[in-house]
């Protein structure tokens, strides 16, 4: 094989494999991102019905109920509430009145069935998603009051 042909073969092969890799990588990225919704958005029906997504907010005080290994609680952004169910062991920092982020799907009865509950870092840390949800809800609250 001539060296020019060899070089062309290497370049074409390299580009082809990079193209295939890019195709798979972007495909995987597209199907594996979890979008984030605030309780207000979920109540308004903006969240997808057929795929997993994340919600964030505060664990509403007095709503945590244990039923064997399943735990029911309410996540709120201070404007709207979403009931959540989770089966398993919650992370150490899960607490009433503290920030939480959950990933899962919306069940037919309107309950958010979480496959994963995140409450990480130290006790004063607020997950950014949870903070954003509360900030947004309070912003709309204020504008509502102004218009009234």
């Amino acid at each position: 094989m001539k060296s020019r042909h060899k070089r062309i073969a290497l370049i074409v092969g390299g580009l082809a494999s990079l193209g295939v890799a890019a195709y798979f990588v972007l495909g995987a990225l597209n199907s594996n991102i979890a979008l984030f919704y605030t309780p207000t958005q979920v109540t308004a029906g903006e969240a997808p019905k057929d795929r997993a997504f994340r919600i964030g907010g505060l664990v509403k005080t007095g709503t945590v109920q244990r039923n064997a290994m399943t735990i029911h609680f309410v996540v709120t952004d201070t404007a709207k509430d979403i009931p959540v169910a989770f089966t398993g062991i919650l992370p150490d920092l899960f607490k009433e009145g503290k920030g939480v982020v959950a990933q899962g799907r919306l069940a037919a009865n309107g309950e958010f069935v979480a496959s994963e509950v995140l409450a990480k870092h130290d006790e004063n840390y607020m997950p950014p998603e949870a903070k954003q949800a509360i900030d947004e809800a309070q912003k709309t609250n204020k504008t509502l009051k102004k218009t009234l």
């Binding site: 798979f24 984030f36 994340r54």
Partner: peptide, 18 residues
Amino acid sequence: LGKISVGPPYFETVFVPL
């Protein structure tokens, strides 16, 4: 453009074929 998270499934899907 919103808040998203890229979870372990993405990395696993990409890593195994590589």
